[in-house]
Design a binder for these strands. Structure first.
Length: 299
DNA sequence: TGCGTTGTTTCACC
DNA sequence: CGGTGAAACAACGC
């Protein structure tokens, strides 16, 4: 579930309360989370200062003063919880374990203890996430291997490029936008949100969008991502959205009213993904049975 | 108990 | 060869 806004929130949390702190101990209870790690043992970080956290797409990178970096992908259910000695907490990512509950939770697999008494927990109920420890000098190369497309927030999206890609592909626009090589950062939540905001049906072939629809999608993407960051991420538990300011607007809100028009939000499947949409705001043109519209699909 | 879950990769196919 | 859709995979909660 952690998508760009959740990972960005974690990055900010780390920089706000762990930067410049010395890591005094690392306790790994589930070593397989580092199964693909070039350097297998993160206890080598003990005694080092945490320099800074960065993010590219949904990958978090935490740099340490011994010129090693920890790369983290939270996948479905990763969570990073920072518990300060004064009792305050900064928790982001998946909503399980309960951010207000006791730590370590049984799904808390790694503890990071710092010199001021702050403890950070990596939790992951699904255990699909991964951590990789590598020399900081190798981080850029490692990121390059993912071949991520441009970020969905930050610099403005290259509308020409994205529009051209959309115009060339016949796959559902939702599937295209989930491709991290096309655009980095959208996951199943925010892609539903962006398409709802743009009033575009997720199953529409990307190339069938009008230029106006393409423009609407491109405009909506950074808006929904920035809104997600502002909210500190989305809260979805057992396929149900927990209300924070009517956010998310449609994702995980099957049976609720569309905040724009009041129509009941439906759940369907696009590219084998659970997909939420407003059938009024996001109309799919009625398919003709007798003849195919205009040109044959391709040459 | 088998199904649903997501980000990502892999594979068969046209 | 490349685009596509479907399946696979990680492992768990319900």
């Amino acid at each position: 579930m952690p998508e760009l806004p959740e990972v960005e929130t974690i990055r900010r949390n780390i920089n706000a309360s762990l930067a410049e702190r010395v890591l005094v101990s690392v306790d790994v209870r589930l070593p397989k989370l580092l199964r693909d790690s070039p350097l297998p043992d993160p206890t080598i970080l003990q005694g080092c200062r945490l320099v800074e956290a960065d993010r590219r797409a949904k990958v978090l990178t935490i740099g340490f003063s011994n010129d090693l970096s920890l790369m983290v992908h939270f996948k479905l259910a990763g969570q990073f919880a920072i518990l300060r000695p004064d009792g305050s907490r900064l928790v982001a990512g998946h909503p399980v374990p309960d951010p207000a509950g006791a730590y370590p939770h049984k799904a808390s697999h790694i503890d990071f203890k710092f010199d001021d008494g702050t403890i950070a927990y990596y939790s992951d109920v699904r255990q699909f996430g991964w951590l990789r420890l590598i020399p900081t000098a190798d981080v850029q190369r490692a990121l390059d291997e993912f071949a991520f497309g441009p970020e969905g927030v930050g610099e403005t999206i290259d509308a020409k490029r994205l529009s051209a890609i959309m115009g060339a592909r016949s796959i559902p626009v939702k599937t295209l936008l989930l491709d991290q090589k096309v655009l980095a950062g959208l996951g199943n939540i925010y892609v539903d949100e962006a398409l709802h905001a743009a009033k575009v049906h997720p199953a529409k072939p990307a190339k069938s969008l009008t230029s106006k629809e393409r423009r609407a999608v491109i405009v909506a993407i950074p808006i929904v991502l920035e809104n997600g960051i502002r909210q500190g991420g989305a809260k979805i538990i057992h396929h149900r959205a927990y209300p924070t300011d009517g956010f998310p607007a449609v994702h995980a809100r099957e049976g609720e009213a569309c905040p724009v028009c009041g129509t009941t939000i439906v759940k369907t499947r696009v590219g084998a993904r659970g997909t939420y949409l407003c059938p009024t705001c996001q109309r799919l043109p009625r398919r003709r049975t007798s003849s195919m519209p205009t040109l044959p699909g391709r040459g």
